[in-house]
């Protein structure tokens, strides 16, 4: 465990909590892509099946359980509790365009051809593209609430810190996981355009709106 990994996990948790607090306080999930949140719930579910097979550490177990619970609460808030405020009209990204290639690729390129490994690989590939429905929604409506941009910033920061974590682990432990690293780099690239807008607009006190 290194500082980049801890900070990465903390910013991941912070992102998830920011989103929950936003929905809870405003009693609205306007501007949030329910599809992205369903994908994240699916990511955690398929990745953390090892909760039943492998014990890594108390930290690892507790964090996995928290992520799972938060992901399902978020989906519940969007599709049940505050359903009336959900902007399904603009959440129109076609999930099959992500799910079909990701499923295919997880069968083709994995560490071993076993159900748990294929599901783990599926979750890694899916996480790398899960934010696309949210980014698509923002580009479609041309704007995002400031709190939503904070959510995206911490989610992107988590990915960037994980890359630093992998560089660190490679140098200190000679450890690297090619599937996680390649997917993680791809995922981080998706946030670059958003990071640029966040720094040039949101941090200067302006609302994020696209021309």
């Amino acid at each position: 465990m290194n500082i980049f990994r801890i900070l990465g996990d903390v910013s991941h948790l912070l992102a998830i909590i920011i989103l929950l607090v936003k929905i809870h306080r405003s009693k609205s999930c306007a501007g949030i892509s329910g599809k992205s949140q369903i994908l994240f719930a699916l990511v955690f579910t398929t990745r953390y099946l090892d909760l039943f097979t492998t014990f890594i550490s108390l930290y690892n177990t507790v964090m996995k359980v928290i992520f799972l619970i938060c992901a399902y609460i978020t989906v519940y808030m969007i599709y049940v509790k505050f359903r009336k405020t959900f902007d399904s009209e603009n959440d129109s990204f076609r999930l099959e365009f992500l799910l079909v290639p990701v499923t295919g690729l997880s069968f083709l390129e994995n560490h071993s051809f076993t159900p748990l490994e294929i599901l783990w690989t599926f979750s890694i590939y899916l996480e790398s593209v899960a934010i696309l429905p949210q980014l698509f929604m923002i580009s479609k409506t041309g704007e995002a609430e400031t709190i939503t941009t904070h959510y995206l910033f911490f989610l992107g920061l988590y990915r960037a810190l994980y890359i630093a974590n992998w560089v660190w682990r490679y140098h200190t432990e000679k450890f690297y996981d090619q599937i996680a690293v390649v997917s993680g780099v791809v995922q981080t690239i998706f946030y670059c355009d958003f990071f640029y807008l966040y720094v040039t607009k949101v941090l200067k006190g302006k609302k994020l709106s696209l021309p």
Binding site: R5, F67, H111, F175
Partner: peptide, 10 residues
Amino acid sequence: SMDLAKHDEL
């Protein structure tokens, strides 16, 4: 190299 069954990252 890595232990296949043990994915220790979140």
